[in-house]
């Protein structure tokens, strides 16, 4: 912190001051802002440190190679990847549609896309159950016609995860599309490309980094999905019991196993952050 006496010196030195002292021109930082800011940061980081401190490091190999843990891990990876695939398949066209200037009611569509972001995941699970359950709006006729029931299956896990992850992908890709220079599409048109060709050969490659970022974000969200999954798919080991569900159940029987599984999820989250570092964190 700079004292009052240094203000005169600063004026005397004019523009030769170096970066470290820039802030001093506006006076010292108010403690009433600095202290809560520090508390907030601590609050975000301290639980994770506690997790690391209490981790059963010696037992870790044994805990993580436990068949239950491995099964949950494998199921999580498979379902999160499948959900991301589903998000890409449906979300990229939706993001593209959102950027079309002639789309009627675009703001309404955009608001609908963001609903799963703010909706409690449990509510999402209940809603999915009411739509796709054996007696659901669509699930009922489906069951009567084909005998297929979706809830409490691995497919249900994928559907629940895709439901909560889709907005992340759509918003990320939409942002990339908006930032892209649309004149490349005009250039493609003058070269004889119809809109379909332009979409695949010009637009998609231009926004590929945005799609990749959105996919990673959706994948991370799907991997951590809990509420919608347990409501719509239940918790059957090997079939619907993903990592977060296994963590929750293990907490009652074997807390060490829960911590070990949590560490895996934490590692994945940090790795995701590292992957997206250039795109997201540095801009914030």
């Amino acid at each position: 912190m700079q004292g009052d006496d240094s203000a005169g010196q600063d004026q005397g030195r004019g523009r030769r001051r170096r970066g470290g002292r820039e802030g001093a021109t506006l006076g010292r930082l108010p403690m009433l802002l600095v202290i809560p800011a520090g508390l907030a940061l601590t609050y975000l980081v301290a639980p994770l440190i506690a997790l690391l401190l209490r981790a059963p490091w010696p037992r870790l190999p044994e805990l993580l190679t436990d068949p239950t843990a491995l099964t949950a891990l494998r199921l999580s990876l498979v379902t999160a990847t499948a959900a991301t695939g589903l998000c890409l398949l449906l979300g990229v066209p939706l993001a593209w549609l959102l950027t079309q200037p002639r789309l009627p009611g675009r703001s309404v569509v955009r608001a609908l896309v963001t609903v799963p972001l703010v909706l409690p995941p449990v509510v999402g699970g209940v809603a999915l159950l009411l739509l796709l359950g054996r007696r659901g709006v669509l699930g009922g006729p489906l069951y009567e016609a084909t005998g297929i029931t979706l809830p409490f299956s691995t497919t249900a896990v994928v559907l629940a995860e895709a439901f909560v992850a889709l907005p992340f992908l759509v918003l990320s890709v939409e942002g990339a599309l908006r930032a892209a220079d649309r004149r490349y599409e005009e250039a493609a048109a003058t070269l004889g490309a119809d809109r379909w060709t332009t979409f695949w050969r010009v637009t998609m490659p231009l926004v590929a980094p945005g799609i990749a970022a959105g996919a990673v974000l959706s994948w991370a969200r799907a991997l951590g999905e809990f509420g919608a999954t347990i409501t719509f798919a239940g918790s059957f080991p090997g079939r619907t019991q993903t990592m977060p569900l296994a963590v929750y159940l293990a907490l009652e029987t074997d807390p060490d196993a829960a911590i070990a599984l949590s560490l895996v999820l934490l590692t994945v989250s940090v790795a995701t952050l590292a992957l997206l570092r250039d795109r997201w964190v540095s801009r914030l």
Partner: peptide
């Protein structure tokens, strides 16, 4: 439409596809 016209365009900043 543009893509069906026998017309070539050189744009001001060229707009070469970067990928």
């Amino acid at each position: 439409p543009a893509h069906q016209r026998p017309i070539g365009v050189v744009f001001q900043d060229y707009l070469l596809f970067p990928h």
